[in-house]
Amino acid sequence: MNKREGEGWSRRNAEAAQERDVHANSASPVIAAFKVFQQELDTRHDKHERLVKISRDVTIESKRAIFLLHRVTSVPDAERPPILNEAEGKLEGVRQKIGQIAEELRGEDIFQFHRAFTAGIQEYVEAVSFLHYIRHRGLISLEEINARLVFMKAENPDPKDSAEAAPSGAHVLTFQVTPADYLLGVADLTGELMRLCIGSVGNGDIDTPFQLSQFLRQIHDGFSYIGNTGPYEVSKKLHTLRQSLGKVEDACYALRVRGSEIPKHMLADVFCSRTAHLDTEEGVV
């Protein structure tokens, strides 16, 4: 047997041995168990990616609603209802996206996938609480938010079902915002209220900054009860909350002390310059 024939024989033996190992492993209970684990992990990873994509859509649409709501400071009171209704329509679309999250989490442990969608839920809480404050000058409760996250899903829609009646095989899905996501969304709300204060000052609204100052002080006092016992993100956002409160109080100071000597259209410039000075002192770039 020459060298080439020997190499061919060795290769064929190696391939045959590998084939025997494959057949042996396919019948092994250990390999079978790991194949089941692989399928479960692939299914879980796919669900996680779908939740991340839905959460991203929830974040984008919630931000658009917030940007729309900031327009209320630049229009007369008579033109505010159409803006608020349009923002409510956008948030209704966001709720439908959250309904998709509820569908994905059906029969699952919510906390196994919580990190995949928490950012979007926090943004939604921020948007819906901002709209609630503009309308009612108060803070929306966690129960009020969750009460609107109830969805009717149909297993197999029947075209014979009327629009008023529940579809055949319909089931009710609920999504519950966690207390931690609610607190984080409210903490982010304070930044939007600070921007609302700046816009109000720029349009000569003297009353809104003082209302915002009192409201932000109440939120700050509420967060102070939590202290360091809450989630890490809450304590991290408390610094931003205090900054927003300080800027609104600074605006109130400027209005109270210098409001009579500065024209209304220049108040926002004075306030913004004082805010930039405060940020520089605090090391904010």
Rank of each mutant, 00 (worst) to 15 (best):
Q39M: 09
L183K: 06
N203E: 14
A33W: 12
Q39F: 06
L91M: 05
K264T: 10
I83R: 06
C197V: 07
S129A: 15
D46Y: 07
K153F: 03
K247P: 03
E86T: 09
H220S: 11
R80W: 01
A187W: 00
E86Q: 14
H114N: 08
L189F: 02
D21Q: 14
H277I: 09
Y133A: 00
K47Y: 04
D161T: 15
M1Y: 08
L184R: 13
A154G: 13
S224K: 09
L51T: 09
Q211K: 10
L91F: 02
R148F: 06
T240C: 04
P209I: 05
I140D: 03
E103R: 15
L142F: 01
S273H: 12
R12N: 11
P76T: 12
A27K: 13
Y253E: 13
T73G: 10
L142R: 11
E88S: 13
G6H: 08
F34S: 12
P82W: 00
V150L: 09
V201A: 11
S62G: 05
K264L: 15
V177W: 00
E88R: 13
E282Y: 09
Q243K: 06
H239E: 13
V177F: 03
D158R: 06
R217M: 08
T59S: 15
Q96H: 14
R217A: 08
D207T: 11
A78K: 11
G8L: 11
L139G: 04
E281T: 08
A27G: 14
I262V: 15
V270T: 11
T59M: 10
H23G: 05
A14Y: 09
G191Q: 10
F210H: 13
V177Q: 01
L278D: 10
V270E: 13
I262D: 06
N228Q: 11
F210R: 13
D42I: 06
G259F: 02
E5P: 01
V248K: 00
S129W: 00
H132T: 05
F215L: 05
E5K: 13
P159K: 03
H265A: 08
V177T: 04
G227L: 05
A254T: 06
A116C: 06
E123I: 02
D77P: 00
R137Y: 12
V285M: 08
P29R: 08
A78W: 04
L139F: 03
M1C: 07
R137W: 07
E282R: 15
H114K: 11
S55G: 05
A187C: 09
V177H: 01
A116Y: 03
R4P: 02
V75Y: 01
A33V: 02
A276L: 14
S162Y: 10
G222Y: 04
H70P: 01
L212Q: 03
H171F: 13
T118Y: 05
T229A: 14
A14Q: 12
E15I: 07
A87W: 03
S213F: 02
A119V: 11
Q122F: 00
Q211M: 09
N203I: 04
Y253N: 09
L149G: 03
I54L: 14
A251Q: 01
R56D: 06
S26G: 04
E61M: 14
D109Y: 09
T280P: 01
A14M: 09
Q38V: 03
K47E: 12
D205G: 07
E19I: 05
Q38N: 11
N203W: 05
T59L: 12
L68N: 01
T43H: 10
